[in-house]
Measured scan of single mutants.
Amino acid sequence: TSQSKEFDPLGPLPPGWEKRTDSNGRVYFVNHNTRITQWEDPRSQGQLNE
């Protein structure tokens, strides 16, 4: 049996976020709370300043 979700070392996405793949196979992220899409992983944002 194959799992639909692959193991992700960053852990789960924040509430309201979804990881998607476009027609070219590039991963992007959707924030359903604000209806915004972005290329950057929301889990890695904010760690750059620490």
Rank of each mutant, 00 (worst) to 15 (best):
L48A: 11
Y28M: 07
R43Q: 02
V30T: 10
K19F: 04
K5L: 04
P9R: 12
N33E: 06
G25H: 05
I36D: 10
D41C: 04
I36L: 10
E18Y: 08
N49T: 15
W17S: 02
T37S: 13
L13P: 03
R26L: 12
P14Q: 13
Q38C: 02
P14T: 04
K5I: 03
S23W: 05
Q38T: 14
S23N: 12
P15D: 05
F7H: 11
H32E: 12
K5H: 13
P42M: 00
P9N: 11
S2H: 09
N33D: 11
T37H: 01
P9Q: 15
E6A: 05
L48Y: 09
Q3T: 11
R43D: 01
Q3P: 06
P14K: 05
Q45M: 11
G46L: 10
I36M: 14
S44G: 12
P42L: 00
F7L: 09
L13V: 05
Q45C: 15
G46D: 15
V27I: 11
P9S: 08
S23K: 05
R26D: 15
K5A: 01
T21V: 07
S44I: 08
Q3D: 14
H32S: 13
E50Y: 01
D22G: 14
E18D: 07
L48E: 15
S44A: 13
H32T: 08
E6I: 01
N49M: 05
L13R: 00
T1G: 03
P42I: 00
L10G: 00
D22N: 11
N33L: 00
P14D: 03
T34D: 14
Q3C: 11
N31K: 03
E40M: 08
G25D: 10
Q47E: 12
L48F: 12
G25R: 08
P12T: 10
P15Y: 02
Q45Y: 03
G46N: 14
Q38I: 01
T21L: 10
T21N: 07
K5N: 12
I36E: 05
Q3A: 07
H32Q: 06
G11P: 04
T34M: 15
F29Q: 02
T21I: 04
D22P: 06
Y28K: 05
N33I: 15
R43L: 01
S44Q: 11
L48K: 15
W17N: 03
Q38N: 04
N24L: 07
P42N: 00
T1K: 03
G16A: 12
K19P: 06
P14W: 03
R35W: 01
L13N: 01
Q45K: 13
S23L: 07
L48P: 12
G25K: 12
P42V: 01
T37F: 03
Q45L: 10
K5G: 00
Y28A: 05
T1C: 02
G25S: 10
W39K: 06
P14M: 05
S44H: 12
E6L: 07
S44M: 11
N49H: 08
R35A: 06
S4R: 07
N24V: 12
Y28T: 07
T1N: 08
P9F: 02
F7P: 02
P12R: 10
W39G: 06
Q47A: 12
V27F: 15
E18G: 09
Q45T: 15
W17A: 03
P42S: 01
N24R: 09
S2K: 14
G46P: 12
P42F: 00
H32R: 12
D8C: 10
E40R: 08
Q38D: 00
L13W: 02
N49A: 11
P9H: 14
E18A: 08
V30N: 05
I36N: 06
T21E: 13
S4G: 10
E40S: 14
G11L: 07
L13M: 12
E40K: 13
S2Y: 13
D41K: 03
H32C: 11
D41V: 03
G11W: 06
R35P: 03
Q45N: 14
T34Y: 03
E6Y: 12
R43F: 01
R43V: 01
D8K: 14
N31E: 06
F7W: 12
P12V: 07
N24I: 04
D8T: 10
Q3E: 13
P9C: 03
G11S: 04
F29C: 01
K19R: 13
G11K: 03
G25L: 05
E40L: 10
W39I: 04
L48Q: 15
N49R: 09
D8F: 02
T21A: 06
N49Q: 15
G46C: 12
G16Q: 11
R43N: 02
Q45F: 04
N49F: 04
D41G: 01
G16M: 08
R35H: 14
T37M: 12
F29K: 00
W39E: 13
Q45S: 14
G16Y: 05
L13F: 01
Q47D: 06
T34A: 13
P15N: 15
W39Q: 07
Q45P: 13
V30D: 05
H32K: 08
E50M: 05
G11H: 04
T34Q: 11
P42H: 00
S44K: 15
P42T: 01
E6M: 11
P42Q: 05
I36A: 05
E18Q: 05
T37C: 07
N31R: 01
G46F: 01
P15C: 13
R26A: 15
R43C: 01
T21S: 10
R43K: 01
